[in-house]
Nucleic acid binder design. Structure first.
Lengths: 182, 182
DNA sequence: TCAAATGCTGGCCGATCGGTCAGCTAGGGT
DNA sequence: ACCCTAGCTGACCGATCGGCCAGCATTTGA
């Protein structure tokens, strides 16, 4: 045996998450992943049933985390909901930079997959919380701006320490929503 | 001849811009466009030399407009530069919703094409203006949040009147940057 | 009137995609 | 000594991709 199984799987997932984030799911072929991971394409499909299974596995940790955030937000309203949504979204966006980038990049190709996070419903409930449960057009626009600003800026390649990024993303989002930044 | 040439070309471009925005450049095949436009795939390649030429033509109006915005911003500094950048970016994002969405969606596949807008340099110069020519980490983070918030929110499917969207995008972005909203 | 040009198409091509399969190699249990 | 299994691979498959080409139909103009 060439490598221990756990190492090979981990190497594949590591290559896949980087390449998917850089070139998109559809823009990355199995051969690309195999070359990057240093094995054959057939070896990928020995460890994973198919390409979707690789994606599903590396997105697996994300779904529960967002579900937990939603559960925390469900009981909140008004400014309290908005502030909690900002804090939670900043945290998850930074912890899952690459994964979130993958999800948004190929959102239309990844939508309607039962085992993957429900991106549409998720964004809807998040913007609802960010707007402080308001249906006013301004609040909805600002909620979208804050959400996309947080997620995509953290997915970008700003070369800043994580704590600086966290603090300024939070401050920027709160101001977008018209809330005081302490 | 089945249709006047100008109509056929216009129909193809109309189908292409909608499909590219909905499913991405790589996610849309020539057959998809042909079916949507109501002609054969071979007919596409009679009117356009190849798939890239379709993309190039429908993005053609965008480049000069952004270049003009950059020229206007070049002479400005500080808060003046930031406010002008917000106004200009909101305007262009709303006027070229679909085109901008296409550019961002497949940014890595479209980069390094000489005749297409230089997305990397463009975003760099825009964030420089949005930050008021500041190199401070906070200003750079907020500039990215404002830029991505404007562009992607206007590319989204918020069902709001254009003037409402313009006003609230401007207000939200200025607040993100820490500027007074009149 | 008739040949040239224009608009358009079906059919085909090589490349690349995701995925399958028979078979090779190296340890580990008995 | 033996076989069994896990890990891995090259070769191959059908589907789909972008693109090409010979040829058909209609219009044009001399």
């Amino acid at each position: 045996m060439a490598r221990s199984a756990t190492t090979m799987r981990a190497d594949i997932l590591d290559s896949a998450v980087r390449l998917f984030a850089a070139h998109g799911f559809r823009g990355t072929s199995l051969q690309d992943i195999a070359t990057d991971a240093g094995c054959s394409k057939a070896s990928l499909l020995y460890h994973f049933t198919n390409k979707d299974a690789i994606l599903t596995e590396l997105l697996a940790p994300v779904g529960p985390e967002f579900a937990a955030l939603e559960a925390r937000l469900a009981g909140l309203d008004g400014e309290e909901a908005a502030r909690a949504a900002v804090a939670g979204l900043v945290d998850l966006s930074l912890r899952f930079r690459l994964q979130v980038k993958i999800l948004l990049q190929d959102v239309d190709a990844l939508i309607n997959r039962p085992e993957l996070p429900d991106v549409d419903g998720l964004t809807e409930r998040l913007t609802d919380a960010l707007s402080g449960r308001s249906a006013a057009p301004q609040a909805r626009v600002w909620a979208w701006m804050a959400m996309l600003g947080i997620i995509l800026t953290s997915a970008g390649e700003l070369a800043l320490p994580e704590e600086t990024l966290r603090a300024e993303l939070t401050r920027g989002a709160l101001r977008t929503l018209g809330l005081q930044t302490d």
